Amino acid sequence: MLQTISKKNSKTVMLLLAKWGKLHFGALKKHSKIEGKSLTNALNDLLSEGLIKKECEDPTKRTAKVFYSLTPLGKKALKIYELAEQLEQERDEALNSGININGDVTINGDGVIIGNNSKVHIKKQ
């Protein structure tokens, strides 16, 4: 499941469904700007994990719209995105303010490790 929700397109679809509640394929494609085949793959992955469900507008119609929405499990999985965002924010704040590790090594706001009379530069992502 983590592999599925960590994919960019899966996250986009889940966040759109969280915002709008229920969307059909065309609306998902329009709002997400994900190409058709990639969107179909993302939807199928999310369906197979039980994170979203699909409902047919009118099964008797040949061209009935199929709507997608989050399942209760999908709504719980959204918390992972919130947690990841919080962790990234905390990491960024720590890097910008400097971190002291064991009193020997400090990583300053520029991403420079200072300790043991040497400086090593690390690249921020």
Score class of each variant (00 low, 15 high):
residue 102 N to W: 03
residue 116 N to W: 09
residue 106 T to V: 14
residue 112 V to L: 08
residue 72 P to S: 07
residue 85 E to N: 07
residue 24 H to F: 06
residue 77 A to Y: 02
residue 72 P to W: 02
residue 10 S to N: 15
residue 19 K to H: 13
residue 108 N to M: 09
residue 67 F to K: 14
residue 110 D to W: 05
residue 100 N to M: 12
residue 56 C to I: 12
residue 13 V to L: 11
residue 50 G to F: 06
residue 25 F to S: 07
residue 77 A to L: 10
residue 125 Q to W: 04
residue 29 K to R: 14
residue 2 L to T: 04
residue 49 E to L: 04
residue 35 E to P: 06
residue 32 S to Y: 04
residue 97 S to K: 11
residue 28 L to I: 06
residue 64 A to E: 13
residue 8 K to M: 10
residue 12 T to G: 06
residue 26 G to A: 13
residue 16 L to G: 06
residue 52 I to G: 01
residue 59 P to V: 00
residue 79 K to T: 11
residue 121 H to A: 13
residue 99 I to D: 10
residue 103 G to R: 02
residue 81 Y to W: 11
residue 55 E to D: 07
residue 117 N to D: 11
residue 30 K to F: 00
residue 86 Q to H: 08
residue 21 G to L: 09
residue 93 E to F: 07
residue 97 S to Y: 10
residue 84 A to L: 13
residue 107 I to L: 13
residue 6 S to D: 12
residue 95 L to N: 06
residue 107 I to W: 03
residue 5 I to D: 00
residue 100 N to Y: 01
residue 6 S to R: 14
residue 9 N to Q: 15
residue 51 L to G: 04
residue 57 E to A: 03
residue 16 L to Q: 10
residue 123 K to P: 02
residue 103 G to I: 05
residue 67 F to Y: 15
residue 94 A to E: 12
residue 72 P to D: 09
residue 51 L to T: 05
residue 100 N to T: 13
residue 121 H to R: 15
residue 42 A to V: 00
residue 16 L to N: 07
residue 69 S to C: 11
residue 101 I to R: 04
residue 60 T to K: 13
residue 47 L to R: 15
residue 38 S to G: 09
residue 54 K to C: 05
residue 109 G to A: 12
residue 40 T to N: 12
residue 63 T to S: 15
residue 82 E to L: 15
residue 92 D to N: 14
residue 30 K to W: 01
residue 99 I to G: 00
residue 116 N to L: 11
residue 88 E to S: 06
residue 107 I to R: 01
residue 18 A to I: 07
residue 79 K to F: 05
residue 17 L to A: 11
residue 38 S to V: 03
residue 117 N to P: 04
residue 48 S to E: 15
residue 27 A to T: 06
residue 119 K to I: 09
residue 108 N to K: 04
residue 32 S to N: 03
residue 103 G to T: 09
residue 91 R to Q: 13
residue 34 I to H: 05
residue 42 A to L: 12
residue 85 E to Y: 09
residue 20 W to T: 12
residue 114 I to M: 07
residue 76 K to R: 14
residue 109 G to M: 08
residue 73 L to P: 02
residue 102 N to Y: 02
residue 60 T to H: 05
residue 30 K to A: 00
residue 96 N to W: 08
residue 95 L to E: 14
residue 44 N to H: 12
residue 19 K to C: 11
residue 70 L to F: 05
residue 91 R to N: 11
